[in-house]
Design a protein around this nucleic acid. Structure first.
Lengths: 147, 147
DNA sequence: TTACTATATAATAATTATTACTATTTGTCA
DNA sequence: TGACAAATAGTAATAATTATTATATAGTAA
């Protein structure tokens, strides 16, 4: 993994905040720094617990809003739980998904090319892998137009 | 998309239920059929609302348990919201994820090969795509041993 | 520096989603 | 048919997410 350069990331953080007229508050800074050094993809509550060490009075709501503003700034990605609730699919045949980041629709698509994407051998050895999932993210036809 | 053959799927459903000693109840049948014909990856609550039309007295809990038993039988996939809560990642550089289906850890990994996987042009045209995400699922080193 | 103002914050409440519990009912098999 | 393990309805408990509001603060410009 290319080691994340914290200084560089903070520089971009300050820039992006300025661009968007977001104030540089200690809460915002600590939350982003905590995320930068985390390697375990924490939940909002986990970030909240960790940031509390430095800022004991911080509220859950602040962490919540800040995490979302960071994703809007594209400084942070959501790796699990985009939309509200767990969703199911009875189509277990080979197919792939596109997720609309605005309306949260998940749309199926076929792709021979994606079907053929393999699982690297070193990972097969390391983990017991049972599935490969490719997800494309963006804006669907309707949501692209509105933007 | 290869059209899902409902009859074929039901046959497999009955087989798998038998194998596992699961009773064929109307609730189970309706829930699976509802999922088979759905194309929108519904949540438990959405399935519940739909199945209610046929079985007005069905309880949310039944849908909940049944949806999970179907995933355990590998008749149904979870496409969103595997573990409890939303999770964040400040590493926005190129990398990929492995998810442990048992302990729900998400582990980063690098892969030049996956970095190079492209986005099919037809999809580029159809959607406004901003990200490609590859997720491998299985059991991590610790969880593989216990099994 | 100081005063101003838009933004951010803490504290908490409301909503929504998930999971657990128990008494009753229902498939299944002998 | 009758016995019994498994499943269900109804509901309660927990957990996660989102909204609200009064107060505080960062950034700006006199």
């Amino acid at each position: 993994m290319k080691k994340l350069n914290v200084e560089e990331a903070m520089k971009i953080f300050y820039q992006k905040c300025e661009e968007r007229g977001l104030k540089i508050t200690p809460q915002r800074v600590f939350i982003y720094q905590e995320l930068l050094q985390a390697t375990d993809h924490p939940s909002i509550d986990e970030i909240y617990q960790r940031v509390k060490d430095s800022l004991p009075n911080i509220s859950f709501d602040t962490v919540y809003r800040t995490a979302f503003s960071l994703t809007e700034m594209k400084l942070v990605d959501i790796v699990e739980g985009h939309s509200g609730s767990r969703r199911f699919d009875a189509n277990t045949g080979p197919h792939h998904h596109f997720r609309c980041l605005k309306c949260h629709k998940i749309i199926d698509f076929d792709s021979d090319y994606y079907d053929k994407v393999i699982i690297p051998e070193e990972l097969q050895r390391k983990f017991n892998i049972v599935a490969k999932k490719i997800m494309l993210e963006g804006f669907c036809e309707e949501c692209s137009q509105i933007e």
